[in-house]
Simulated scan of single mutants.
Amino acid sequence: MIGAALAALACAAVAQEKYTVALDGTFAPHAMPKLGGGVEGFNVDLANLIGERLGVEMDIVATQFSGILPGLQAGTYDFVVAPTTITQERAENLLFSEGYLNTDFQFLIPADAEDVTDLKQLAGKTVAVNKGSAYDSWARGLAEEIGWTVESYGTNTDAVQAVIAGRADANVAGNTVSAWAAKKNSAVKLSYLHETGLVWGMPFRQDDAATRDKVEAVIECLKIDGTIAGLSEKWFGVTPAAGSAAVTPQPGFGQPGFPGYEDGGHKPSC
């Protein structure tokens, strides 16, 4: 009976020739349209590398983020390669890989401005944000305490342009998005980093721990051999800090401290 079960598992593994995965194709620099069609970016590269290491084809579907997690639950996608913040609520309904990037808030300021090491330095200043974003609500929640004025713009690109044009003193957005903007425009530079303690992971259906574990084992090796750090340098212009999610494999499967995490004695090895 045991031999038959192992044989069945082996056949299933051989039969798996393609994964259909999803991401938001408009979230630069994680995924964005490229000349000639298709998408490119950090998460596109990461997904393709996972496919290469597993020896399977990756069918990457670019779609709106709002439909990605429902599509995963419906079986449209095998797993999700879009940057997805691991939260308690999400982890109660989905399985997550361990985190592969930290998701923090970071400020952009003019390239010739004094570096911001304390938010109080922005008292009396204007901070530009993407309207309706998490950064918008966070900055407004601190407006009275810090003493800054928050100006909202239709897109984060417009908010960055406000800094370049001198209509705002700083912009706050996600750390990777801010790093991309600084890499693309020498008129601004990265400054104060607000650590959230949260990470991005890859979601899977709760009944598919086998795929989660296979993919996570690859992610761990991509951390250990420096591949994810190299992708960070390529797309964000940033070398991940020691101890960050991009370079630190976790024991077990899943993100420690969240539902779905399984220790089981697993240790990263490549």
Rank of each mutant, 00 (worst) to 15 (best):
V61M: 12
N156C: 07
V129L: 02
L94G: 02
Q161A: 13
E57L: 07
A173D: 15
G124R: 12
A159G: 08
F105C: 00
A173H: 12
L101I: 06
Q121G: 02
Y153D: 11
N102H: 13
G132S: 12
P70W: 07
N93A: 09
E145P: 07
E92L: 08
T76D: 15
D112L: 05
N171R: 03
A113L: 01
A173L: 14
F65S: 11
E114F: 00
P110F: 04
A82Y: 08
V177T: 13
R53V: 01
T117S: 12
L69E: 05
G132M: 14
D158W: 01
G147N: 14
K125R: 14
T63Q: 07
D118A: 08
V160M: 09
N175L: 03
L122R: 00
L108V: 03
V150S: 02
V44D: 04
S152Q: 15
F96W: 09
G132P: 03
F42W: 03
F96M: 08
E40T: 15
S152K: 15
K125L: 05
R53D: 04
T85K: 12
Q73N: 07
V163F: 04
G41E: 01
E114H: 00
A170L: 05
V160L: 10
A159V: 06
L119A: 03
S152M: 15
G75E: 14
K131D: 15
F105W: 15
I146P: 01
L94A: 03
E92G: 11
D112R: 01
A62S: 13
I109N: 02
D112H: 02
A82G: 07
R53N: 01
R90T: 00
V150H: 07
Q88R: 14
